[in-house]
Design a protein around this nucleic acid. Structure first.
Length: 583
DNA sequence: GCCGTTTTCGGCCCGACTGTTTTCAGTCG
């Protein structure tokens, strides 16, 4: 039985929750499956190991019943309740609920009335006009669902980096344990830290290729072998992702890594440079060629740095920016900026607690911040106007501030806590609380939480209006996008960033893995405007603070430098950057 | 289905927004 990793277990539990919801089960029962899935996804230890020691109930949200179901799943790939649920409604309906505008009720309605059991069938039902003939489905609703379908289809078959990266790292580590494997490195879009990836490429170096190919087929996470030859084996993992593992000779490892990291555009530009210099570069190395283009001499290719060096680069462009969008010219000129890196990060600028809709306490967040080696952290619970999560009232804030003061007073070597809040930008661009209350925070984030249907111009106006307030220090998840689910608002980003630069407003890079908002392209624009960036994980449990790595990766993709990154500053500088303190 | 300074039952996730509904259903966060 192939081994299920935490992501795969979490996914099955989510499917179970979705099917129960479609079937109209008790909503709290549905919720418990989702809570457990969320908790398992962020859990650092593999559940397969914990199950053997009968310790599954240590995971928050996992009780006796779920522990039994998970154990069953680890042994048989499924559990009886899941099979029963799938017998009632096809699992394809779960896919339907992933479409924005379609929830469990509509999924079931579409299935019962039209036999729609997939997103493709839904699109067909929209096109044929069948959907519009169901009661309650007016023109606007159908149009809204169509947009949801289009967004879904544009991202189908791709996996969030959050799910793919830990899997790839684990596979590489497992391969490295094999004596024949000298190195194993994830390449491709994953190494470039793209927000979603379609498959995983791993480059291994070995003197004994066939032994490595054997090892790949034997990996615990392999569900099916798609193909296996002398230099490449393709497998499908239990999480449904395709993995291609290539094996090359040790002296080719750098060239292969460079070649398979891409991007395609970057490599084309590189080969043009080689050709002009009388050389050739491919996945086997860098070569000198004669006038006819025939290989004369192999120059190198053992390491990636060597490949770039032979081609005349004083700097190796970091994988995250290899898109042929200026990095080649800059690296050749030796003017690539130093990009922000994980070691620069001194704190997290967006985290919730049990005071509103999150699952960890302030102290648990601080313990995680300490584990991550931070100097400071923040509390940014939801503000009053967001009633759906019972945002903080002023008396509740005062209670929280007293707690922060007490924790800070007795902190010793522990990180310092800044008093923050996540305000809501209202329909008119105003935010929560009176100015005298806003003045008492160390800083405020202001975010949009409604009005996704408005046009870009209107939302741009709301953001510009919000930036009129001296107490809006940071704009949170500016475009509101959720990858694969909700498109970014079509903001006039140039205007927003220009205004941010004028007012000294900091823009957030929300590091939650399905947001990554601002995106790489917008970040680069922000850098050109000289706008400062604050990376925040938007943690809803302490473990989510580990998502900082996806924020840093996205920052690097957006050419964010430490001197414009709030998280890279010591506490005193952080304070001086906040707008309220700079007037 | 989980959880416990209300501890083995009974609470947990509720209000804004949208569209089509003339009094509310469904989705979303």
């Amino acid at each position: 039985m192939p081994e299920l990793d935490n992501a795969a277990i979490a996914r099955e539990l989510e499917v179970m929750g979705d099917l129960l919801e479609i079937a109209g089960a008790d909503r709290f029962r549905v919720l418990s499956y989702r809570k457990a899935a969320n908790s398992i996804r962020a859990w650092p230890e593999q559940l397969s190991a914990m199950a053997e020691q009968d310790r599954l109930t240590e995971v928050p949200g996992v009780g006796k019943r779920l522990a039994a179901s998970i154990t069953e799943m680890l042994h048989h790939g499924t559990f009886p309740e899941l099979e029963a649920a799938k017998a009632e409604y096809p699992a394809g309906l779960v896919e339907l609920t992933q479409v924005a505008g379609v929830g469990p009720t509509r999924a079931r309605q579409f299935y019962d009335k039209l036999g729609v059991d997939s997103v493709d069938a839904l699109l067909h039902a929209i096109d044929s006009g069948e959907l519009g003939r169901i009661g309650g489905m007016g023109e606007k609703t159908v149009a809204s669902i169509r947009r949801g379908v289009e967004s879904f289809l544009a991202h189908r078959g791709r996996m969030l980096l959050r799910d793919a990266l830990p899997l790839a790292e684990r596979l590489a580590a497992e391969l490295l344990e094999h004596p024949a494997v000298l190195s194993a490195t994830p390449a491709g879009s994953l190494r470039r830290m793209q927000e979603t990836v379609g498959d995983i490429d791993i480059i291994t170096a070995s003197e004994d290729g066939p032994a490595v190919m054997d090892a790949v087929r034997e990996l615990p996470a392999v569900a099916r072998v798609l193909g296996s030859g002398e230099t490449k084996t393709s497998v499908l993992t239990t999480s449904g992702l395709q993995v291609d593992v290539r094996v090359v000779a040790p002296e080719q490892a750098g060239a292969a890594l460079q070649y398979f990291t891409g991007s395609k555009e970057h490599n084309i530009a590189l080969r043009q440079i080689a050709k002009r210099a009388g050389m050739k570069v491919n996945e086997y190395g860098v070569f000198r060629v004669d006038a006819q283009g025939t290989e004369v001499e192999r120059l190198g290719g053992t390491t990636e740095d060597e490949v770039y060096e032979l081609l005349g680069f004083p700097q190796t462009p970091p994988p995250e920016i290899r898109h042929d969008t200026g990095e080649i010219e800059a690296a050749l000129a030796g003017t690539l900026p130093r990009l922000v890196e994980p070691g620069d990060i001194r704190g997290d600028f967006h985290a919730h607690t049990t005071s509103t809709d999150a699952h960890s306490t302030l102290e648990e967040n601080r313990a995680m911040a300490a584990e991550l080696g931070y100097e400071y952290l923040v509390v940014t619970d939801h503000a009053e106007n967001l009633r759906m999560v019972r945002g903080m009232t002023v008396p509740q804030l005062e209670e929280q501030w007293a707690e922060v003061d007490a924790l800070n007073a007795a902190r010793g070597e522990l990180p310092y806590i800044l008093k923050g809040v996540e305000l809501n930008i209202g329909a008119d661009g105003t935010v929560d609380y009176a100015p005298d209350v806003l003045a008492r925070f160390d800083f405020c984030i202001a975010s949009l939480h409604s009005g996704w249907g408005e046009d870009g111009e209107a939302v741009t106006g709301r953001l510009l209006r919000a930036m009129e307030s001296l107490y809006v220090d940071i704009i949170g998840h500016p475009t509101g996008r959720i990858i694969g689910r909700r498109d970014p608002i079509a903001l006039d980003m140039d205007s927003v960033l220009a205004r941010a630069a004028e007012t000294g407003t900091i823009m957030e890079l929300n590091a939650y893995p399905d947001r990554l908002d601002l995106s790489d392209a917008h970040l680069r624009l922000a850098m050109q405007h000289g706008v400062r960036i604050a990376i925040g994980t938007d943690a809803h449990r302490a473990e989510h603070m580990r998502y900082m790595r996806y924020g840093v990766a996205t920052a690097r993709r957006g050419w964010v430098t430490p001197d414009l990154c709030l998280n890279a500053q010591p506490l005193d500088t952080v304070r001086s950057w906040l707008r309220r303190n700079s007037a």
